[in-house]
Each structure stands twice: as structure tokens, then as C-alpha cells.
Amino acid sequence: MTLESNQVSVVMLGASGAVGTEALNVLLQLKNIKQITLLGRSPIPNITAGNVQQHKIDVGDASSYQSFVQNSTTAICTFGVGQPSKISKEDFIKIDKTAVLDFARECKKAGVKHFELLASVGISSSSSSFYLRTKGELVEELKALSFDRLSTFQPSMILTPNNRYGLGQAITLKIWPLLKPLLFGGLRKYRGVPVSILGQAMAKNILKEGKGYEALQWDDFYSISK
């Protein structure tokens, strides 16, 4: 079953990033979304849709956006560090965990029913990987907030049309698609996903009915984005 789009009001954190941009583009094409509220460090240019509101906020200060999350039914969070290896562990926790959790708490207080998070494949609060453990801890804390519905999108490599992070990413973007035939069965979740498919899935999933916690991976992205 699907929800009527005119029943949905969305608040987004991270709409200017690669995945957020794709999700926002799809949201703007969906008919009758009641309202789209974009929160960020600076406005996104060239958005003229009448149902869009943009607010410049301090992501580290929840009081700067408290009032802007009101009257939203759904939250989409694609906010986070593009290259975690380039910053300290303390800063990574501050951005990818603390700021996201603060946003989620404000959403919960405001009555948001459905929270969507861009996470990663392999996340676990008991992982030996600092990155995966931090993301896993975040998800456990989000579960404790008891949203009516919590959707975590868990991609492996996100395939972007442009290289944003130098030689390492350039090599990865070339090699990862070649691994697809080797990633089958339980390994399918490690297949690379085009950023456009992931963004479409995050946007269209808000119109699907659901309850409780869902961890969405490679096959789900393609199923939802159709």
C-alpha cells in the first residue's frame, strides 16, 4: 500500500550532498507533497517550488532549527562526512552521530512519524571498525526513540558520476562495478549502487506504508526506486 502524497510533509537534513540532492530532485517531482523543509548551512540555489521552505541553521545547535521541524510527518537525513578518514574520530562522532541524533530527537519531539537515515552496509554497534561501530551505535539510539517507522538505507559503494574525493575514489569508481558478477547471494548487498537509484529509493520510500524498523540494502533500493 502507498500513502497519499498530500498527507506527507518532509524535513530534510543533508539535501545538498550527493545522495540528498538526488532524493530532493525526486521529491520535487512527486505531486502534492504538502511541504518540503530543507535545513542546512546555506540555501540550495534555483529551487522555486512553492511547497519548499529553506532555513539556514547551525547543525550543532538544535535550538537553531527546533521550530522548523514542526508539522512534518517524515524526516530524511543524508547528513554526514564525505571522507571520514580525513577528520579526527572526535569530529566524526560530532558530525555523523551527535548532530544526527540531535536532529532525530527534535523530530521525535515534533511528532515526526517516519525517520529515514543514510547509513552504510555492515553497520553494527559491536563492529571492530570505528566507522561501522559509530554508525551502528547511532542506529541503536535511533531505535530507542521509537519512531513509528525507522528506515536505514545501507549501501556499500555509492557510485557517483563524478569523482569528488581524488585518486582513491577514482580507482574505486572504476573497479567496483566490475565486481558485480562476483557479488551474488549473501554478497549482493555489497554491490555498488548508482547515487541516482539510492536517492530515488529514499524519496519514494516515504510514500510506502510500513511500521517499525527496516534495514534496506541493494535489492531494496532497486525495488523501491521502480
Results as ranks from 00 to 15, higher is better:
residue 148 D to K: 07
residue 149 R to E: 14
residue 149 R to I: 09
residue 149 R to L: 10
residue 149 R to S: 12
residue 150 L to D: 12
residue 151 S to V: 12
residue 151 S to L: 13
residue 153 F to A: 10
residue 154 Q to P: 02
residue 155 P to E: 02
residue 155 P to Y: 11
residue 156 S to W: 10
residue 156 S to T: 05
residue 157 M to I: 11
residue 161 P to D: 12
residue 161 P to V: 13
residue 161 P to Q: 05
residue 161 P to K: 01
residue 161 P to H: 01
residue 162 N to Q: 15
residue 162 N to S: 15
residue 163 N to C: 14
residue 166 G to L: 03
residue 166 G to M: 00
residue 167 L to S: 14
residue 168 G to K: 07
residue 170 A to T: 09
residue 171 I to P: 06
residue 171 I to M: 07
residue 171 I to C: 07
residue 172 T to Q: 02
residue 172 T to H: 03
residue 173 L to H: 10
residue 174 K to M: 12
residue 174 K to C: 09
residue 174 K to Y: 09
residue 174 K to H: 09
residue 175 I to M: 01
residue 176 W to I: 07
residue 176 W to G: 04
residue 178 L to W: 10
residue 178 L to C: 14
residue 178 L to T: 13
residue 180 K to Y: 07
residue 180 K to R: 06
residue 181 P to F: 07
residue 181 P to D: 02
residue 182 L to Y: 13
residue 182 L to D: 11
residue 182 L to P: 13
residue 183 L to N: 01
residue 183 L to F: 12
residue 183 L to Y: 05
residue 184 F to C: 10
residue 184 F to E: 08
residue 185 G to Q: 02
residue 186 G to W: 04
residue 187 L to Y: 05
residue 187 L to Q: 04
residue 187 L to N: 08
residue 187 L to E: 06
residue 187 L to S: 08
residue 188 R to L: 09
residue 191 R to L: 13
residue 191 R to T: 03
residue 191 R to Q: 09
residue 191 R to F: 14
residue 191 R to A: 03
residue 192 G to K: 00
residue 193 V to K: 00
residue 194 P to A: 04
residue 194 P to M: 00
residue 197 I to V: 14
residue 197 I to R: 03
residue 198 L to F: 13
residue 199 G to W: 00
residue 199 G to I: 03
residue 200 Q to Y: 13
residue 200 Q to V: 14
